[in-house]
Write a protein that binds this DNA or RNA. Sequence first.
DNA 1: CTGAAAGCGCTTACAG
DNA 2: CTGAAAGCGCTTACAG
Lengths: 343, 343
Amino acid sequence: MKRKVTLKQIAKELDVSISTVSKALRNSIEISEDTRQKVQAFAKLYNYKPNNIALSLKNKKTKTIGIIIPEIVHHFFATVISGIEQVANENGYNVIVCLSDESFDKEVINMEMLANGSTDGFIMSLSKETQQKKDFHHIQEVINQGMPVVMFDRVTNDVLCDKVIIDDQLAAYDAVDFLVRQGFKNIGLVTTVDYVSVGKLRTEGYVNALNDHDLPINDNIIVKIEDIDNCAAKIEAMLQNNKPDAIFAVNELFAVTTIKLANKMGLKVPEDISVIGFTDGIISQFSTPTITTVSQNGIKMGGRAAKMLIERLEMEEEEDGNEQYRTELIDTHLVHRESTSTL
Amino acid sequence: MKRKVTLKQIAKELDVSISTVSKALRNSIEISEDTRQKVQAFAKLYNYKPNNIALSLKNKKTKTIGIIIPEIVHHFFATVISGIEQVANENGYNVIVCLSDESFDKEVINMEMLANGSTDGFIMSLSKETQQKKDFHHIQEVINQGMPVVMFDRVTNDVLCDKVIIDDQLAAYDAVDFLVRQGFKNIGLVTTVDYVSVGKLRTEGYVNALNDHDLPINDNIIVKIEDIDNCAAKIEAMLQNNKPDAIFAVNELFAVTTIKLANKMGLKVPEDISVIGFTDGIISQFSTPTITTVSQNGIKMGGRAAKMLIERLEMEEEEDGNEQYRTELIDTHLVHRESTSTL
DNA sequence: CTGAAAGCGCTTACAG
DNA sequence: CTGAAAGCGCTTACAG
């Protein structure tokens, strides 16, 4: 077991000072060609690599990005991480991932943990509980300490920072508008409880679209789900009692569940009832029928978020206090598949 | 913007030495009750938190685990990360995630990057390319430097280290055995190319099961897929030309693709053809019909891998050189769903 | 051209 | 009970 070699050891071995070794390796012009070659050859031989931790301590930057998300077992979030990772790597950054499990406490703990020097900045999406409590002190604190934060998807107006989101309201509006134009008049909504920011916005888009087409808002065909694992009963009841001719669901799971329940009741999709989901993930692509959905490019969102964070990180060195926070919109579009008819 | 407070600042403010502050905060008995209280109160007021980087440098351990996997946009891997993260967190460790994108070079680069002090050890699953090249020098090197490595799922016998896997061969055997017992005689296989270790093992399980039942191995109904994104054509041809009565697929995607192609050809699943997949992910659960599959508990695998790594990490302190590497088997079982009949 | 010193933020053996 | 010193592994301004 040959432990990693350090500058100190090289210096000793070559009988020069540590500073000389350090400079030689960094190709400083202060050092004679001769010793430089000697040092570099030796370093190569022993496969010297500077210790990241020592560099971080010295430079006061870690070149790592902290990611805090509610869950990773969720295609959309995995996708975002993938996008972040790619851009981060291209720029010499690593990513350290923490999951809040939708818990406020875990979010706070993870954030504080990473804020103690482990990362240069954060990319995050709020946990459900955090959105419910509306307590963002941990985020504000991190920002106050000078660490940039970029929020994506589940964001809040209560914290000033860079954000990357989609226009949830507009995307939902367009989806519902599409259904209306196809002639449907009794369009149901399967959404989340209102404290989930994106759910609320998508609900608003649905309402606006119906309003603009002078269609009534019927609370009987609006289902607000609290617990995603037990959504079936409420959806089934709505389907059963109100016979909607189309459904807009604010995520993939609600969409596929709706389709399965409809099938169970003997309804065919899209012949008897059309369904549009949200987030173009694995489920939408592979379920039968494949699901028409609002695409939300996670790779792109992640990449953009990483870019914003890194830019701010590298900018900070020069001018400080340039507090022009930006909110970037990633565009979405309807992906037409089998769960709606083409007319 | 109030930057984070350090021991030095507290010392200055309170007019004591840095050592005294450090000891007071760590409740050293060397320190008088009086100053201890004073220091702790002050630290609390200014929300002092020790700098992780400094601690890492000092202690020569980072309390972070490096994870290197081929892809994250893959339910199984996301699941494993989730399992690792949970156990890691419980033990005060963070995880830093790097993706190899199935590329050997990226795997090497990431590994070297993290090995320079950023992590205490690794949990990894080999990239396809690495498995193909059979070049594991980067892993061996890390191990030689004294960093423990735990491999999971896609492992190799060429590296001695802890491993956590499932019995791919047995699991496949059981699945195929089940089909045979249901009376099928013309059972097709949709698998990967042989250099993917798990694919090869599952193929072997298939072959063994048929052999044990004295059924012939028919190469015409064995499809080996290289590129997962373009698997449809080959599967379709096999289905078309050989009319198998059942299919064993070595992953979810192959299974769902097979079902869709069968449907397209007018075959009903499971009435006309039964299908069993591998890995119990989102697709198996939500496709129509839902897919009978070999469950492979990623959360459990990840958790176990993290446990093994952490145990080795904490053990190292006492005795060194205890090179008793273990390979843990996570059990699997067949999850019966709609794509096979219950008889 | 080379090296001693200071410093990043911390801990701890040792002196007083 | 308190503090100066050394050290983790590195960099860089400064002296020689």
